[in-house]
């Protein structure tokens, strides 16, 4: 039992959210295999969830405090805890009932360092959960993404098209080359394995697909297919439905950054005009970032 002094202390975080499904969507986007340990970091700006795979792939979900309808942060520094991502998502999913927007309250820590979740919108029916947390592993690879040069090497492509392209590259598999060239402005995904497959996104040919393109010199790096696939494998359907774009940036040493936007807006209710206005609010978006390390390959042409 905790002492009264401990009980009097406010928890590090108490926050309330009115769209559980949005949070489930955002967290599911970084769920690429069954068992994943996640590290959650709390701050006055919001909640960040980080997962990684063999030091080659890292994903972050940013849930800014603006996504929450209440956000009471009382900690010094930035408390971190470890949690099983699958369990956390499955648990949150039980709070999301179809056709109903459900309001939940999340608290950390509970009396036994648990993560506490409970529904708060109904008096006579209540769903609650206590998730065991762990002392987090030190993140072996907390990466500082640095731009590759004075001008960023970046392009923005429709998320649906990116997912489709990466799904198609499963067939050649193994490693995938991403090539950016300024003249003619074009992004190429090339897979060589069981066979060859090349997918070109030509900037001027299809501006609907490739929305933005910045590249002043030709670059090319190779990435492991399974890591590239993880960046889009669980893209929530709302991202496709909202017709969003994903931004890809190549940084120093070929580090690939993939950014998605996931809507955490409240479900449409009886006031469509208000909701559509709210829909546009940038603050109701969760940011997802993946960092993929390139394959170290002697004969890859880095710069030409």
């Amino acid at each position: 039992m905790s002492s009264s002094a401990l009980e009097a202390e406010a928890p590090d975080l108490v926050c309330q959210l009115d769209n559980v499904q949005g949070m489930v969507d955002a967290l599911s986007a970084v769920r690429w295999k069954r068992h994943q340990d996640a590290v959650v970091e709390l701050s006055e700006h919001g909640v960040v969830l980080i997962v990684e795979d063999t030091g080659c792939l890292q994903a972050k979900v940013y849930l800014q405090r603006e996504l929450f309808i209440r956000y009471e942060y009382n900690a010094e520094g930035r408390p971190r805890f470890g949690v099983s991502l699958g369990l956390f998502v499955d648990c949150l999913n039980t709070f999301s009932l179809p056709g109903r927007s459900s309001m939940i309250e999340i608290q950390y820590p509970g009396p036994d360092m648990q993560l506490l979740v409970k529904s708060v919108d109904s008096l006579d029916a209540c769903i609650y959960a206590e998730i065991r947390t762990r002392i987090p592993d030190t993140i072996s690879w907390d990466y500082n993404f640095e731009p590759a040069g004075s001008t960023p090497l970046t392009f923005t492509v429709k998320s649906a098209a990116l997912k489709e392209a990466i799904d198609d590259l499963e067939w050649p598999g193994s490693s995938i080359q991403i090539l950016l060239q300024p003249v003619p402005p074009c992004v190429t995904f090339k897979g060589e394995g069981h066979g060859d497959l090349q997918i070109d996104f030509m900037y001027y040919v299809n501006t609907d697909l490739l929305i933005a393109f910045h590249c002043d010199r030709q670059v090319s790096y190779r990435y492991k297919y399974k890591f590239l696939h993880a960046t889009t494998s669980n893209l929530p359907s709302s991202v496709i439905k909202d017709n969003r774009g994903s931004k890809l940036t190549i940084g120093r040493g070929g580090m690939l950054k993939v950014q998605h936007l996931v809507s955490v807006a409240k479900l449409a209710t009886s006031h469509p005009q208000i909701d559509s206005a709210r829909h546009q609010q940038p603050s109701r978006i969760a940011y997802i970032e993946f960092f993929v390390k390139p394959e170290v390959d002697e004969d890859t042409v880095h710069n030409s």
């Binding site: 099983s84 369990l87 648990c91 039980t94 008096l123 006579d124 029916a125 209540c126 769903i127 609650y128 959960a129 206590e130 998730i131 065991r132």
Partner: peptide, 10 residues
């Protein structure tokens, strides 16, 4: 051991 998840209807 990892989670307690419940619902109460009153």
């Amino acid at each position: 051991t990892l989670i307690t998840l419940g619902a109460e209807f009153r």
